[in-house]
Each structure stands twice: as structure tokens, then as C-alpha cells.
Design a protein around this nucleic acid. Structure first.
Lengths: 211, 211, 211, 211
DNA sequence: GATGAATGAGATTTCATTCAT
DNA sequence: AATGAATGAAATCTCATTCAT
């Protein structure tokens, strides 16, 4: 059920009542497409409304500003991402396998919604402005760090490594692959994605150097 | 000697006329500080001029537009960075050592000019707009890829790895460390920087997993 | 009984059905409070509806526009005020006493509804826009002028004075006292009000100058 | 000499260098005309710029907002008014004469700039918003109160009267005369103005009642 | 080289009003 | 009567860029 600002929980009734289009979600989806195509700054409110097929001012019924639209996109995605990483953490298993699964989830997002990835990758720079969103990134980084730490504690990962830095390396590697895809060399099929997952995992876990 | 647009070589006449500050460089330095503080978009021409201590319109004497200022900052820095990486490539030596030296150069830039790093890290997202600049990033990536490739050819690096993806991993790891520093956890001393260089090199070259 | 627009006579059926609050009056009272607090222009329909505890669109059930709400407030009040002044005129008596009673009625309104006075005082300036309302102000001014005139005819008031200007002086004096109260120096008790009534009457009738 | 915001002292160099039109004053004068004609709210920035014969954005070169334009008009006028009243106070003389001269100055402003009076009278309602401006009104009121007080001390004015209330009566009387003129009954010539000055002075000083 | 007043297109945002339910 | 989502016109303000001096 929507609250005062019209927000719903992620698992809202949209599945149950698909007939009544949720205009808020319509706007959010439209915003992602428009932001992906023109960039946040070049995107005008009118573009988003037109893309969503609703009136100009309706966006302001659901969001306080253009910025809040982007912020919502960020937060929604990061929340889902945190859930997914949390799930991987929870299942336990070998640290290397957890790294692989995180890579699979992060890089797999490209297939689900390339436009969304485009927006996330291009507009990260706005993070300093989007203070709240930083919180979620930090949480993701914390989760990655915990994975590394548990790997060390299990004797699986090199114990001498600085865990925060190692988490940064993993995170940076994944982000840069997505960036590469966004910047002009997208994966052509599932095999390309699988190769990327495998390569990131191998480099980060086993290293470039031949033993 | 300044050309029509007023540009000079990096090692310009400032050495000859040190008393009379080079206003162009003054503006460039001011721009870096302002971009670092407020971000490119929020930065106004007036802010830059005031920071440089020169008049409003003078910026347009030296640069065609605000965009060109950022572009110049990018190009100047990337040119220097490419030179440095080129030098590392040229000296040859073990691939692992080359990776370490690249990491040292990239992460060492923080000490030289943190604001500059801030700008570079935050505004990469503008790359699609800054068409020219993409070229330089690609060249840097090409250099990294060549280092990986030569490592493989020398039997030092794992031959099965996709070289482009491996280059992305390395590049992403370095950028993320800088980003981490920018976002609020800067290195406190040279040891912190050295630790980061060592950690990135170890993770990327030797992997997280204990052999 | 409500007419097509839902208007009722002042002494409407609210007396008969006190349990079920009259939403129209609820809105009107809420509007006065909101106008008093934020001013007519800054007041939004949503503010009024929320203050009244009714839904957004209901206001348009009872009033054609936001302007009509203010107009109604004005008209209702001025009608009552005209009745009161009319009563004073009708009873006859010394002109000085009539002036005193008018002052008592006008200044006494503060106790009854300070917010209403706030609105009336602040939004008079909108008169040119509120064409209808000007009519009622003019009628009030006419009544004051008649009082002065009769005072002259009775030989009680100085015959040489321009009656319209004299009426303006009286009206302005009363309005300014209310304004003073509105602007931050409200009367603390009935004595303060009585003092104001006496002072205005004395100054206007007897003058500042000691005979 | 203009300061950072382009403001000048009241007695600026415009008299000395009439050739170089002061665009800021041009805008201020245009604003008064437009505000007088359409009211503050209905007046668009474009109207003012066009009336002044300058470009849209220039208004924002000199003023931070439309509100600041109105505020400046208020403050400039009130400052001049305070100077004038201060001058009257300074010269001393009988209290009754001082009242007469204040009335002459206030009501005389109509001839100097009717549009300005229109704006001041109509937009007083904005005072609560224009907090700063209230200060100047209060100072004016203080000056009037001092005149009454000195009149009492000199044995010229009735000592029993509450001086603040008396000042309000005088101020309200003057404002209402201007309001009457603004609302549709302007003085046709100097005699009408002189009559108004005389009438206000007589009523307030000598009273309506025939001794 | 240097200055900063002047320009004006363009985008966000507001909010009174309508209308389907 | 009552609700509140939906509409869209209108207006302020920003700021990169130009240009006369």
C-alpha cells in the first residue's frame, strides 16, 4: 500500500493488481531509460513524463524533485543488491565461491536491465551529492570485506592482506567491467558475461601470476 | 609560446617569468580546486575566476568553454600518466614488477594533488560527453593490456585469461582505491600509500587465495 | 438551506445539526487560520484542506476557487460589521458616542477572532482584485461619513471639515490600531482594548491639543 | 560607487554622470511602474525588464530575486521618509506644526511619485514577509511617538493620552488618506492635497468636536 | 591582456483546478 | 458528499557566454 509519498515496499501489490498501472513505477522505469539515453543532467522532466506517458506535474506528485527520482533509482537498486549479497553471505560456503557468486550477481545485472546499469555507472559521480546513497555503497563494501575476512579466518584467503583494500579491489574490478560494457563494449551474449564472471573471480582469487 | 588559443606546452614560460603568474595556469589550478569541492556541474565560471583571483571573462580568453577547461585538466593529466606508464612499459622487466610500478604511479598521484585526483575520479562519468578524453583512457587501458599480454607471452602470467578483462580488473582496482580515498578514507602517510600499492599488486598478481 | 453553490445564510441549519460538522464552515474557519498564518498567497489549497481535516478536492465542492474562499471570508465579516455599524447609526444619540461605539465594535473584534482580524488587515491590499469586497468597504466608509455629517448638522462636530477625509481619518486610525496589534503588540486584556477605544475616540473627537 | 551587489548610496553619481544610464535605477523605476499597474504578484520579471528596456537576466545581476526588488523599493523609500521626519523632529517648533509638516511630507509624496505610493500602499500587506522593512516602519512610528511625547512635555498636547496609540492614530490617518487616493479618489490638484493635510492635522490635533 | 556588465535561452518547480471513482 | 490522483500552464531563476571598453 502506498504511503504518503506514494512509495511502496519492493514487493508491492503490483503483481496482484497488474491491471491498474502503477504510475510511480512507470515514471521510475521511464526515468531510467531517459537517464541512460541522455544522462541525468541532459534529461528533462518533460522527457521522463512523456516517456512514461503521463502528465508533466505527476512526477512531482510522487517525487519531490528530479534529484529524488535518481536517488530513488539508486536506493531501490542498492537495496536489492544488498539483499542479494546478504543472501550469498548467509548461505556460507567457500569464500572463493562467495566471490564468484557476488561477481555473478553484479555482472548479471547487465542482462536484467542494461539501462539501469548505464545510469548507475555514469551517475556514481553524483554520489558525493547523494549523501544518503553513499550509505548503501558502504554497506555493500562492508559485506565484501566480511567475505574476505571470513575467507581469511577459514584459512582459505591470504591472512596478511588488508581486508578493506582487498574489498576495494574486488568492488573496483566489478565496477570497471560494468563501466567497460557501458562505455562501448557490451557483452554480446551470456557467454561473454560468464567469461567476465570467471575472469574477475580468477584474477582476484588466484592472481594473474602463474604459480 | 602561446598558440592562437593561448595554450602553452606544459613547461611553459612560467619558468622564465615567474614573477608574473601565468593566468592560464592560475585558472586551471583554480578550476581543479573548485571542481574538486563542488563538482563540475555545480561549479560556476564565477567561482573559478574568483578562486583564481582574475576577472570573470578572462577564462574565455584562454578557454573556449567551461567544458574545455575540464577537458584540458583531463588531457594534461592523462598525457602525463600515459608518459609514465609508457616509461614503465619501455624499461621492460618482469610483468609483476611493471604492475607494481603502475600501481605506484597511479596511487602516488594522490600525494601530488589530491584535488586533481578527486576531479578525475568523480568526473570520469562524463567521459561519454568528453569524447576526446575517452581516447586517452583507452590508450592507458591498452598499455595495461599490453603489460598483461607480455606477461603471458613471457610465461609469467596465466595464459588462459582474457587480457582486456584482466586490464579492466587492474584499472578498476586502482581507481576504486583512489575513490575510497576520495570518499572519506584518505591515506594518512606514505606508509598507507605503500600498503595500498602492495595490496593491489598482491591481490591482482597473486590472488586472494592461499596457494 | 444550501443553494446551488452550497452557500447558506449566516444562521444556517448548523444549529439544527450540530453533531455533523458543517464542512463548509470547517473549511472557512480553517482558511482563516491558514491565511492568518501564511498569508493568502502562500496558503495552498492543500494546507486549508489538511487544517480542516477534509480531502483536497472538497473545497471545490463549496467554493469555485481559492479567491472565492477569501471573498467569502471578507463578505461574511463585512456584512456583520455593516450590520453593527448600521445598528449604531440607527440608535442615534450624540455623534461622539456613535464614534466611540464604532471604535468599540471594530477594536472589539480582536477578542472574538484575532486570526480573522489578521486576515482582514493583511489582505485589504487585495481589494482592487476583490472588486465586490470594495463595495462593502465603501459602504462602511459611507456610514462613518454619515456619522460625521450628522454630527456637523447637529452642531456637535466642526462644520468646516471635509467629511470624507474625516471618515478616512477615523477608519485609518482604527485599522492602524488593529494593525499594530497584528504586527506584534496585541492587547493583553480587556483594559488594553478599552484604553485603545478611549484613546482613538479622544484623539479623533477631542484632538491631541490641549484646549 | 557601486558595491559588489551594485548598490549605490542614495545620492549617487547619477547626477554627475547622467549620460551613463544607471541600469539598476532604471530597473527599480520600471519595477515601481509595473508593480503599480499590475501588483507585485501579477508582475513578471519579464515585464519589468521590458519596461526598463534591458535584458531579462540583468535584473538578477543587481537583485537576488523579485522579492529583493520590492524590498529595495520599500527600504529606499522608508529611508528617505525617515530622513524627512528626522529633519522635522530636529528643527523643533510647536508639536502641532510638526504634525502638520509630517502630514505634508507623507501626503506630498503622492505628487512626487503616485506609482510609488500605489505600490507602498498595496503591498504593505507583504510586510510580515518583508521582516526587515518592518524595522523602518517601527522607526517611523517611534519618531511620531516622540513628537507626541515632546508635545505633552511642552504642555501643548493632552498629557493623559497613551503616546503609542496616539502615534498609531496619526500614522493610520495618513496611510488611509493615501489608500483612499490609491483606491480610486486621487487628489485632482495641489489644493486637494493641501486640504487633506489641513484636515488630517485639524482632526488629529483639534478633534472633530467643536469646543 | 583584462574587466565585468549585459544577454537570454532553458529548465525546474509550483499549485490551482479538474475529474474519475 | 467525498476523495486524491492527475493535469499542465505559468513563472522564477540560473549561468554559460558575449562584448564593449
Amino acid at each position: 500500500m502506498p504511503d504518503a509519498r506514494g512509495r511502496r515496499g519492493i514487493h508491492s501489490a503490483t503483481v496482484v493488481v497488474p491491471a491498474r498501472a502503477d504510475k510511480r513505477q512507470l515514471l521510475l522505469d521511464a526515468a531510467i531509460r531517459v537517464f541512460a539515453l541522455k544522462g541525468y543532467h541532459a534529461a528533462r522532466i518533460g522527457d521522463i513524463a512523456k516517456e512514461a506517458g503521463v502528465a508533466y506535474g505527476l512526477l512531482y506528485h510522487y517525487f519531490a524533485s528530479k534529484e529524488e527520482v535518481l536517488e530513488t533509482v539508486f536506493r531501490d537498486t542498492w537495496t536489492a543488491m544488498l539483499d542479494a549479497i546478504g543472501g550469498i553471505e548467509a548461505t556460507g560456503g567457500p569464500a572463493r565461491e562467495q566471490v564468484r557468486r557476488v561477481a555473478a550477481v553484479v555482472l548479471g545485472s547487465w542482462k536484467l536491465n542494461p539501462d539501469l546499469v548505464r545510469v548507475l555507472v555514469r551517475e556514481v559521480a553524483r554520489s558525493p551529492q547523494l549523501q544518503n546513497e553513499v550509505g548503501e555503497i558502504r554497506q555493500a563494501m562492508d559485506a565484501l570485506e566480511r567475505i574476505v575476512q571470513r575467507g581469511q579466518e577459514a584459512g582459505e584467503f591470504r591472512g596478511t592482506l588488508h581486508t578493506r583494500l582487498a574489498a576495494w579491489v574486488l568492488y573496483g574490478a566489478l565496477e570497471e567491467v560494468l563501466t567497460g560494457w557501458v562505455m562501448g563494449a557490451p557483452p554480446e551474449n551470456d557467454d561473454d558475461v560468464a567469461l567476465a564472471v570467471r575472469t574477475v573471480t580468477e584474477v582476484v582469487c588466484d592472481g594473474l601470476v602463474l604459480d
